[in-house]
Design a protein around this nucleic acid. Sequence first.
DNA 1: AAGTTTATTGACTCGTCAATCAACAAAAAA
DNA 2: TTTTTTGTTGATTGACGAGTCAATAAACTT
Lengths: 194, 194
Amino acid sequence: MPKLGMEPIRKAALVKATIVEIGRSGSLDVTVSQIAKRAGMSSALAHHYFGGKEAMFLAAMRHVLSLYGAEVRGALLAVDGPEQRLMAILRASFSPANFRREVVGAWLNFYVLAQTVPEARRLLAVYQRRLRSNLLFCLRPLVDDRAGAVADGLGALIDGVYLREALKGGTPDGGAAVATVLTYLDRQMKGAGA
Amino acid sequence: MPKLGMEPIRKAALVKATIVEIGRSGSLDVTVSQIAKRAGMSSALAHHYFGGKEAMFLAAMRHVLSLYGAEVRGALLAVDGPEQRLMAILRASFSPANFRREVVGAWLNFYVLAQTVPEARRLLAVYQRRLRSNLLFCLRPLVDDRAGAVADGLGALIDGVYLREALKGGTPDGGAAVATVLTYLDRQMKGAGA
DNA sequence: AAGTTTATTGACTCGTCAATCAACAAAAAA
DNA sequence: TTTTTTGTTGATTGACGAGTCAATAAACTT
């Protein structure tokens, strides 16, 4: 049965399964066998392709981060002007996709991982820098010299609002999350409302 | 050797040891034996007093939360007036104590726990409600009808700034965290600077 | 003194799991 | 066609860990 060129297919399946299992259990306390089973293969094969559990976690983290990045980039393509771009970033950050159980589980556990696994911390830092850079680009025309400070606050606010909305219980409300952030933003710009 | 009245002493020691071990490992992946050993007793005794690992985690969470609450209450006693009280809350939230490795570890892992353990979620909600109530009390004189929205944003911002500062790498800088939040606050009040 | 409650642990059970390996199967290269 | 590379798994190893239990001991009660 063995067809060639399976490696990328298997790896992708394992990454997806890893994220689903983290979401299911809510923690990194998932076994390689669980993941492999969900991905439709033996645990031995998972080890064969990834070498170990931590490598699987990191690959999953990269995947979640890159999905988020793609969502933001896609949203930015559809709009024009600083205010519109800011709104697009917010909507993408608080989209239903990002509040799915497994994505929330992934993020929270990546924070935990970032405490002790340098590569995880690095990936998180990359994400934060990119977000900051996107925000700065929008904010400079709007608040000029205060852009740096506003971007720092806005980035942290996005994380904090996401955290609270994700852990609030009940159905997360991306719209409410966007609104909370806008309350902040409105006051940061002199007189221009979005 | 057995002296009577050991229960509270043992429990307190176990709670402390639990927090230290979570900080050491950065995760909830700590064994009862590790905790018990650090607390100077056998693992059987830990089970005897707490019944299981999850109960120990929840007790640890209650402890961290109550320490934070006490710190805020203490800081509030020393000041007067809404602005001063706000500053006190911020300083307490970003105090060096809260950036100690084991406290950061506890918070991050409590977030993870809150996904799946209802009691953990409840405790987190209690903390957030209390913070909100404290903020509201300060904000009403300052921003009146907008107090609700500002308190929501401010609460999330505090969480987000804490998260970033804690995971940033290097020595966390509580002062910078306070400053970031103040950038937000200043603009939320009409014209009154702290 | 006899009985009860509280404190305490070593040893054990039962289960789990990451990682390895030998072996088998099929495609590609030689 | 033989050989090599790639894909794949069942079985095994070796370790660890949560929770239980029987047994011991000191302190209180009657």
